[in-house]
Computed example of a mutant assay.
Amino acid sequence: MSNIVPGRDSLPVLVDHYLPAARRERLSPLLYAGGMLALGAALLIAKPRIGHVPRATLAEGPPTRSHSRRAVQGSRDIIAPFAPSNVTDSIGRSLMIGGVALALTRVLDEMAHRRG
């Protein structure tokens, strides 16, 4: 006899109990992770020109005496190194990090639920 009560238990518990995932569905996240890794690596290797961001140039002129303007320029100089020079590199790295995280999560999940 099951301890699951349809009105009292949450929907994910009921779904897991009555509809266990098929092997194909359990492994599909690994395929997605592989695709994310492949696409991310392709973007990092190819470095398409469409993702290149031109370097912003500051307007030349006499030094300003305004405290607020100097503060804004100082903030810009601090933030500028974090801006990507190629957007596709950033997207590629993000895809690879996400792919690794997805694959590790799926593998660890399978190891945790392994019955032996």
Rank of each mutant, 00 (worst) to 15 (best):
P20V: 04
G74W: 10
A83N: 09
P6K: 02
L44A: 08
L58W: 11
E25C: 13
S28I: 12
L11T: 15
Y18E: 13
A41L: 04
S28Y: 13
V100M: 09
L14R: 08
G116V: 04
S75M: 14
T105G: 08
T105E: 12
S10T: 14
H17P: 05
L11N: 05
G35M: 10
A42K: 02
L30C: 14
L39R: 00
G40A: 12
P84Y: 03
S75G: 07
E25V: 13
R55L: 13
H113M: 01
S28R: 10
L19Q: 14
F82T: 13
E60A: 06
A21F: 11
S66Q: 04
P20R: 02
L31M: 07
S2T: 15
D16W: 09
V5F: 14
N3Y: 02
P12Y: 08
A83R: 08
P6D: 02
E25N: 15
I91Q: 00
E110Q: 09
R49C: 00
D89N: 15
R106V: 02
A71I: 01
R49Y: 01
H113K: 11
A38S: 09
P62M: 06
A41F: 02
F82C: 05
G34A: 15
G34D: 14
R93Q: 13
T57A: 09
V15W: 07
V53P: 02
G7C: 09
A38I: 02
F82D: 11
A80Q: 15
P6S: 01
L11P: 00
L19K: 04
N86M: 03
A46Y: 02
T88G: 03
D89T: 06
D77E: 05
N3W: 11
A59G: 10
H52F: 14
L43H: 00
S85K: 13
A38G: 10
R106D: 14
P54S: 02
H113C: 02
I78K: 15
P62D: 08
H17N: 12
S66C: 03
H67R: 11
S10Y: 11
